[in-house]
Design a protein around this nucleic acid. Structure first.
Lengths: 206, 206
DNA sequence: CTCTTGAAATGACAAATGTCATTTTTCACT
DNA sequence: AGTGAAAAATGACATTTGTCATTTCAAGAG
């Protein structure tokens, strides 16, 4: 099995190489230090599996992965992560990575590699348990980008829980009319018509 | 590595056993034919990994898995499936299964087992790609169970898209008042107060 | 044919909602 | 203290929404 290892910490790459090559059927073709090198090296060798750190300086592992998969859709990419970088997991999944496991977990690496080699996807179990909630929190709509203030966001969230203007005004210590005004501007900013559409929007963008 | 295999098709179990035991470090302790036997056999042997079909006659693999995990939280259960039984995947995940792979995929089985043995979770890649949508569609609320009719369901869906009563009445060729009446009874059945709460309910239960 | 039943409609009403122009309050800044 | 700009409130208004009692209509059962 041919591998390429990418990690910005040379020590990590080298120890991985040593550990893995102790196994006779594994060959580490080359080692890279960042996303750019990952793309180049993949192009050069087209290894069976690409073992890559996710957070690196020059180019993140995700970007590199995307580029590689664009060119080689069948590429098998296994991400290494120091601790569970929650934010990246979904993206990695969505991108088409074959797995996501902890660096520390030396013994797991070998079987994981074999599994990936055979077309499976492998995830550390801590990660799998988190998956449902992670997916839920992904794809968040960026309200702030649309010029929506903190207070407006509060109101959006309360509407998305089904509260009436009156209830919202009480919770936020505002006049009911004020809440109505806020809602009015929110609707305008998001180009929606009424509170129900707002609730729908809220749930469809997350 | 000690295994127990559960499958209602004896032929499957036996061929699996043969294939796996060709590998010297694997022992199949015993074979079972349904969920009940799975629980009993797990109790008896407490194997390293339990390899189990998901859909079986007497007791489904999921139920068996749940019972086993209740008693042995560290149990490693790897589900086998004929084709991608979409409905079960989420449940299996949520239950704490260590994996979910296709029966046909003989070569994958061995590395998958080793990965599981080492604390990873393994999934066929077809399954991983589906995951996001699957999770979205899981947890569907059973409207029919609450005595909600087809037409009422239509209306719920339209409200959950943000349409007004007028718009709904046009789409459904009903009077606007009729739509209001329908909504009224829907709200009562689901113990909600207004259309916004209905939309919220809709999105939170799926 | 009549009776029953359920779907669809009507009309009337109170309450909630959304819009808009205007005012009051607050608070930071000089 | 005085000024300007947000933030919050007010009041008036049209519209939508939800509730309820009642009516209409069609289809199937007897």
């Amino acid at each position: 099995m041919n591998l390429i290892i990418i990690d910005d910490d040379n020590l990590v790459s080298l120890s991985l190489k040593t550990i893995l090559e102790a196994n006779e059927d594994i060959q580490v073709l080359e080692i890279g230090r960042n996303g750019l090198e990952a793309v180049a090296l993949y192009d050069k060798h087209q290894p069976d599996v690409l073992l890559m750190d996710i957070r690196m300086d020059t180019m993140t592992g995700l970007d590199a992965g995307r580029q590689i998969l664009a060119k080689y859709p069948a590429a098998k990419i296994l991400f290494l992560t120091t601790f569970s970088d929650d934010e990246y997991i979904i993206q990695a999944l969505h991108m088409g990575a074959k797995g996501y496991i902890l660096k520390q977990d030396f013994e797991s690496l070998l079987p994981a590699l074999h599994a990936v080699m055979n077309g499976q996807s492998v995830f550390g179990s801590e990660i799998v348990t988190k998956l449902p909630t992670l997916i839920a929190h992904a794809n968040q709509f960026d309200y702030l980008a649309k010029g929506i203030s903190e207070k407006e966001l509060d109101i959006i969230e309360l509407i998305a829980k089904g509260f009436s203007n009156k209830e919202i005004s009480e919770k936020l210590f505002l006049g009911e009319g004020t809440v109505r005004n806020y809602l009015s501007t929110i609707l305008e900013k998001l180009e929606l018509r009424d509170r129900t559409q707002l609730a729908v929007f809220y749930y469809q963008n997350r």
